[in-house]
Amino acid sequence: MHIAESGAGPLVLLCHGFPECWYSWRHQLQALAEAGFHAVAPDMRGYGQTDAPEEIAEYTIGHNVSDMVQLVAGLGEKQAVIIGHDWGAPVAWSSALLRPDLFRAVVAMSVPYRVRPPVAPMKALRDAGTTNFYQLYFQTPGVAEAEFEKDVDRSVRTLLYGTGLSLMMKPGKGFLADTTIPQQLPSWLTDEDISYFVDTYKRSGYRGGLNWYRNIDRNWAISGGWEGLKIQQPALFIAGSNDGVIKFAAKAVENLPTAVPGLKKTLILPDSGHWIQQQRPSEVNAAILEFLRSA
C-alpha cells in the first residue's frame, strides 16, 4: 500500500473514492499536519501505486475495511479517526461500524451511511427494469475501462469538471458521452493537478477502481451479519449542495441522525459539487478541525 503522510500526532486516515487517488487529499494533509495530527492518505486498494489484485472478489467492503485496520497497525497506532469521500465514505462508515475500538470517530463526505436494503442493490435495479444507471454499466469487466482509458486526459477532465455528466445514461452510449469540457479550468484545479491524475491513471488504468462497483451486491450479501448495528462514535457528514449523490440519496441524508446516533453535524456547502474537499478546502478543513477538537 502506497501512502502519503504529513505531520505528527493523533492518527487521521483519509480514504479517497473513484476515480481518485491520495492526491485528492493534498489540502487536508497540510491542514491536519499544521493542526498537530498525523495525516495519512493511502492510495486505496486497486488505485495508484497500491497493489491491484486480479480477482474482482478481492475488492469487497470487507477487504477495504481490513486494509484500513492493517494500515493503523502498520503505522504502530492503536486508534485513528477515519475520513472518507465518495467510495471512501462507505469504507469509513463500515470501519467505524465494525471496529469501534479502533476508529474513535468518523467523517464522511458525499456518500451518507445507508441502512442495509432488503434486496441487493444491483438486483433491485434489474428487477425494477432499470438498465441505464451508471453502476450497472460499470458491472461488465472491460467495458468502462475501454471507454475511460481511450483518452485518459479527456476522462480525467470530464469526470472532475466536465458538464453534462449524468448518473442515468442514454441507451447505447457510454458514461462520458454527450459531455463537454469547459475551455477554462475551474478555480480549484491547476494544470499540475490534472497532470498528476492523468499520469496516475495512465500507469494504473481504471480496472481496480471499477472493481469496487462490481462488488456492490457481494457487499450486500456479506453485510447481513452486522445488519441493525449503528455507528455510535462521533461523526460528521459533509457534502456539496450540487452533488448528484446526495440528491440521489436524499432519504439516507435525512435519516442520518437515526442511523448514526453519534452524528454531530451535517454540513451542506452551497454552490459546491461532488469533489468537495478539493473544491472547498478551507471550509472542509475548518469543519474537520472543529470536529476533531471535540471528538
Rank of each mutant, 00 (worst) to 15 (best):
P100Q: 04
P112V: 01
T131S: 15
V106E: 05
S94K: 10
P121G: 09
R126K: 13
V111T: 03
T131D: 14
R114C: 03
W93L: 07
R126C: 09
D101A: 05
F138C: 15
Y113D: 03
N132R: 13
Y113S: 04
A128M: 10
P121C: 09
P100E: 03
P117K: 00
F133D: 14
K123D: 04
R116K: 04
L102K: 00
M122L: 15
Y113L: 08
V106S: 10
A96E: 07
S95Q: 09
Q135C: 11
P121L: 11
R126H: 06
Y134Q: 13
P118V: 10
Y137L: 14
A96Y: 02
L102S: 00
T130M: 13
P118F: 11
P118E: 12
P121Y: 00
S95F: 06
P100T: 02
A120P: 03
F103A: 03
F138S: 13
S94G: 06
A124P: 05
A120M: 04
Y137P: 13
P112R: 07
R126M: 12
V119N: 05
D127A: 15
R114W: 06
W93K: 04
M109W: 06
N132G: 12
S94Y: 06
P117F: 00
S95H: 02
V115F: 03
A128W: 01
N132D: 15
P121M: 10
